[in-house]
């Protein structure tokens, strides 16, 4: 029997991996992918709790998150392409004009 603890442990692990990648990697595309991974980790927790409480609200939220993630990827990758056209690079160290 899968318990909520199992699901939460995996969810936390995936979130940590995603956060680690988003903070340490320098490739903009990989950072976007890490953010997707973190969103997925949260989705997993939602699905686990939906199953635990027997409430479909969790699954509905997951569907919303998937839709929002698809939108954010469309815009994010649009930004990446625009950046690559202007800077010829997808390294975030090269786009630090607004960094203090």
């Amino acid at each position: 029997m899968i318990t909520v603890e199992h699901v939460l442990a995996l969810s936390g692990l995936l979130f940590a991996i995603g956060a680690l990648g988003a903070l340490t990697r320098r490739n903009l595309i990989v950072i976007l992918m890490c953010i997707e991974l973190m969103l997925n980790a949260v989705n997993l927790a939602f699905v686990g709790f939906a199953r635990a409480w027997g409430d479909l609200g969790g699954q509905v939220v997951v569907l919303m998150v998937i839709a929002v993630a698809a939108g954010s990827v469309a815009v994010g990758l649009g930004i990446v392409i625009a950046l690559f056209r202007n800077r010829d690079s997808v390294n975030i160290e090269d786009v630090s004009l607004l960094k203090w």
Partner: peptide, 26 residues
Amino acid sequence: IYVLLRAHLVAAVQIMVYAGAVLVLF
């Protein structure tokens, strides 16, 4: 795992949208 947690629709959407569209886009 979603299928194991009885979230069949979410599992299908996960594969169709995430694996099938979002990551293909990447």
